[in-house]
Nucleic acid binder design. Sequence first.
DNA 1: GGAAGGACTGTAAGCGCTTGCATATTGATT
DNA 2: AATCAATATGCAAGCGCTTACAGTCCTTCC
Lengths: 339, 339
Amino acid sequence: MRRATLTDVAREAEVSIASASRAINGLDNVAEGVRNRVLEAAAKLKYIPHGGARSLALARTNTIGLLLPDIYGEFFSEIIRGVDVAARAKGLHLLVSGSHGDVKEAVAAILAMSGRVDGLLVMSPFVDSQDLGAVLPVSLPLVTIASRIGQSGYGAITVDNYAGGKMAVEHLVAQGCTRLAHISGPESNFEAQERKRGFEAAVAAHGAKVSYSTVCEGDFTEEAGFQCTRDILAAVDAGAPCPDGIFVGNDMMAIGALFALKEAGLSVPDDIALVGFDDVPIARFAQPSLSTLRIGVYELGRRGLELLADALADPDGEPAESIVISPELVIRESSKRIA
Amino acid sequence: MRRATLTDVAREAEVSIASASRAINGLDNVAEGVRNRVLEAAAKLKYIPHGGARSLALARTNTIGLLLPDIYGEFFSEIIRGVDVAARAKGLHLLVSGSHGDVKEAVAAILAMSGRVDGLLVMSPFVDSQDLGAVLPVSLPLVTIASRIGQSGYGAITVDNYAGGKMAVEHLVAQGCTRLAHISGPESNFEAQERKRGFEAAVAAHGAKVSYSTVCEGDFTEEAGFQCTRDILAAVDAGAPCPDGIFVGNDMMAIGALFALKEAGLSVPDDIALVGFDDVPIARFAQPSLSTLRIGVYELGRRGLELLADALADPDGEPAESIVISPELVIRESSKRIA
DNA sequence: GGAAGGACTGTAAGCGCTTGCATATTGATT
DNA sequence: AATCAATATGCAAGCGCTTACAGTCCTTCC
């Protein structure tokens, strides 16, 4: 059976389609009798308003597009949580899409969203995300999260990854580590590069007292952390000096590292101390629990959406300033070498 | 600046809007010259097709609506992963929404999605989900996951929770447990009730050899598992017999239980064996790693979407049969008492 | 008794796009 | 030179809805 349209309802109730619309939407300039007839007809026909048509007529979708590298997993799930909670509070719906590590796909996703959303919340941490800027609908409110897209006049939330990298090093050194290693995120990932840069700068600042080897580039997955750590240990077996502290580019890789170290019979933190990044929920469940740099992933999503919602509510208000989040060191078991 | 419409492009290229449309969509009945002019005009004006309008005209959105109790967290994130992967493969977009434990909200979400999606993938494990059936757009293809909604002619994926509950008991008994406890999910949750029913039936089947106490009803969160376990231990302190095996309604609560038991200085599995449900990714990271009943959460999402995509592709094909998934026991450290 | 105002209701335009149909335009065919 | 089939283009209707505007019909008030 074809779905009932407003026209059907109007015909059934023997009123004009305009009155039907008004009755359905609860406007007050409708006579009681008409309203009831319309409502009855709607119920009888199982009429459900066509959101798409409504949006077209109103030029308003009450939906915002959320574009993330992926839409699942510890980290992104936490972002989604923040966005979801805030969106609900504002009465907005979510059209989500994953760019799967590729600017091309991100562009495709944005094009597909165009005309279906009132605003865009985008996280595109790829180094070449500038390309996105070129495609972006100029007229669409846009808030970026941890991205480096040129023109985002509507606000941006960024994380001070560089500072985070430095903090990790300072902490490890304070715990007595002198030979550090770093398992970084992908070279194509802007955030990963900043963390690495912070790491290297901090190590360099310590001069000869602290040495390091940036051993491995992973892709932010647990498997990559596992594999990189194995590689490090293999190098050690082959004669390289063994690190006594590893700064891992994110928590999931750190968990992989934990597994590899356990497998090798090494103790964390005594043989090797470990610091991750993000503080995803799983970090405190790890064994030993994971020291990390907290960036408040949930908040990232929540504040991002709020920025966007504000922009939507007041389209020609001041373009929101950019928010910079400073990571906070969370010390847990994986790096606690000094009581 | 107003966003450019097809009309603008057509005017700029000095062709009719129809030709512009054809050129943009790559139809072949357009002269080269016209096509180029249109494409140039589009580029110049930064024209981006309006997806909403397009959908209205085509009566096709290439989007499917995903309705879950929540759209984040270990369990749902894993479902989303399955759905996302399958959706990408089919070229479909995702409009996701959380019902936040409430049929009312689920209804609202579905209404909001109406006319924006080609089909619905719904998980509504509430006991009173029948209510949903009444509202559901009859004409919209609908696949349910682990739900009990009356009329879903388009396929459903369900989990044999009852069998799972029984399996948990059999396993615990086989490990030598004789005094069981169960931490169940919410009373309002159909799946939780089935698991509990399976648990009780299996225990009863063992007669006097095995006793049990269904101690606590949680809400599937880690905190609830923690609290319920504390309650159990408090009861033990007050003189109740101490269970030597607990079947926990899902993995997140089992992890909470693990924490509570550790806090109380009890050893898992030696003092108390633990079995969870779902096998979410975190289960194997727990310490000790968590025995559980695997239902293949990822697959749940993936197959759900595929069922739906099939229905979409062939609207009057056979209504897909209902798929029943049998949980599979995964034995890890938390319940291994017998070598 | 007629004008003014209020309360409803309907007509129709329009949101941005696709597409069936009619209308050129062109080249090939007899 | 006339005919026909392609081929290219435009017109206009229509997707389902909202809403400005223009009535219509009563009251109410001089």
